Simulated scan of single mutants.
Amino acid sequence: MNTNLVEVKNLKKYFPVNQTNLFSTQKQFVKAVDDISFAIQSGETMGFVGESGCGKSTVGRTILRLIEPTEGQVLFEGQDILKLPPNDLREMRKEMQIIFQDPYASLDPRKTVKEIVGEAFHIHKIGSSKEIESQVKELLLLVGMGPDQINRYPHEFSGGQRQRIGIARALALHPKFVVCDEPVSALDVSIQAQVVNLMKDLQQKLGLTYLFISHDLRIVKHICDRISVMYLGALVEIADKADLYKNPLHPYTQALLSAIPTTNPNAKRQRIILEGDVPSPMNPPSGCRFHTRCPEAQEICKLKAPELRDLDTNHMVACHMR
């Protein structure tokens, strides 16, 4: 039986925004992540999906403490990493890493592959220069690149190769948990498939646990075991991928899935068009955050926020109508 490697409890991240006018200075907050809870089992891939700006990337970075949370708990193997002092957090970082979205911006153009991938060994003072070089060559082989490329610079590689270098860097210290922040969205479609398959192979080979953030529901279906759906900083549904795609319960999830392109020109699918714009995260609607765009909204949806509750085995939804 799998145990939870990561547990997130009542996580909040509010970004302060100063608004000044002639009469007063009022501080407001962008509620990027607003009181969410979930768990990731050891060895699984948890997908996070939702529209751009819903808070997916903020969740991933807050879990790793790249962004400090406003409130909540993040338990890694039962230990709350938000309470760790600097020295203990430094050691914990060996176990938790991130693959960034943009393979062009995430690699230092002034450094060689050896310096980029080997930087973690220098920071944590692991191994001699010869040992680090040997480790970097092994990591390059692991991600499908040649060890002879160790002294080249990022501009000498394609986007897919750069992302492989980013993956090698993330795996340098043999982490257990990796946040994948839209790792293939900046790549060509043909390269996306190669990188996603590489990540699946590495997961099986190294026993990794992923938090996979994406807005591409086809890729999420391919790589993830369970999927969490976010809307305006809140979780609206969590389910096994097969159950979610076969039987989406939340109206927002249904609208997202109806937008997936199909390769069959004869396939008949009812497209759900959501009316209106996403509300501002500085002033989210009262009650259910989705009620301003929901075709099924009732009076209770405007007054009371629904709880994320378990309706079936491993299927949770936050909706008064379910």
Rank of each mutant, 00 (worst) to 15 (best):
T3D: 13
V6K: 04
E7I: 01
F23Q: 10
S24N: 11
D34K: 07
D35C: 03
A39P: 02
S42A: 11
E44Q: 15
M46N: 07
M46H: 10
V49K: 06
V49H: 04
S52Y: 02
G55H: 07
S57T: 15
T62P: 11
I63Y: 00
R65T: 08
T70F: 08
I81H: 04
L82C: 12
K83H: 09
K83T: 13
P85Q: 04
R93W: 10
D102M: 05
K114I: 03
E115H: 00
G118F: 09
A120S: 14
I126L: 06
I126R: 05
S129M: 14
K130W: 04
I132A: 02
I132D: 00
L139S: 01
L139W: 01
L141G: 15
L142Y: 08
V143Q: 07
M145D: 06
P154I: 02
G160N: 11
G160S: 10
R169E: 03
D181P: 00
E182I: 04
E182D: 07
S185Y: 06
S185D: 06
A186N: 01
A193P: 03
L198C: 10
M199T: 06
Q204E: 15
L208A: 08
T209K: 08
V220F: 09
I223V: 11
M230F: 14
Y231E: 04
L232E: 10
V236T: 11
E237W: 05
D243A: 13
L249I: 14
P251K: 14
Y252C: 02
Q254F: 02
Q254G: 06
L257D: 08
P261D: 03
N264L: 14
K268F: 05
R269I: 13
Q270A: 12
G276M: 05
D277N: 13
M282N: 12
R289T: 06
T292S: 13
T292V: 13
R293V: 11
C294Q: 11
A297N: 08
I300V: 13
K302I: 00
L303Q: 15
A305R: 15
P306D: 06
D310W: 04
L311H: 14
N314W: 02
H315D: 07
M316S: 15
A318W: 08
H320S: 07
R322Y: 15
